[in-house]
């Protein structure tokens, strides 16, 4: 997974992605926080903190971001390339990828 991911650092208030952009990557917060804003950019609809992963459903749907996301404080994330998601599953220990596939099968 390492070569398919990149650490990025955002300043407070810097946008991670904007509404309408194609969702091609998903993210894990390493430190700081990401706020997903409402359409007016005023209210935080959802917050993601260290250790949380987000964006996978949008990426799997090959959709566009329906909201803008910004950093709250200096925020460090790992950015994962969506095209390698399933390859990454295959590279995991079998019990972990089986577990994740099982979870996905419950949809």
């Amino acid at each position: 997974m390492a070569q398919n991911s990149k650490e990025i650092r955002l300043f407070h208030g810097e946008a991670l992605f904007r509404v309408g952009q194609i969702a091609q990557e998903f993210y894990m917060v390493n430190s700081g926080a990401i706020y997903v804003l409402d359409e007016k950019g005023v209210i935080a609809l959802k917050q993601f903190f260290a250790g949380e992963l987000f964006g996978i459903p949008e990426v799997l749907a090959k959709g566009r971001w329906s909201n803008t996301a910004i950093a709250s404080g200096i925020t460090v994330l790992t950015r994962f390339d969506a095209s390698h998601l399933f390859r990454s599953l295959d590279e995991m220990p079998a019990n972990q990828s089986d577990f994740i596939r099982h979870i996905a099968s419950l949809a």
Binding site: M28, L53, F54, I56, P57, M92, P93, F99, I103, L106
Partner: peptide, 13 residues
């Protein structure tokens, strides 16, 4: 074994 597996499971769930 892998730091991605747990948050990925939580995200899909």
């Amino acid at each position: 074994d892998n730091r991605l597996a747990w948050p990925l499971s939580c995200s899909i769930a």
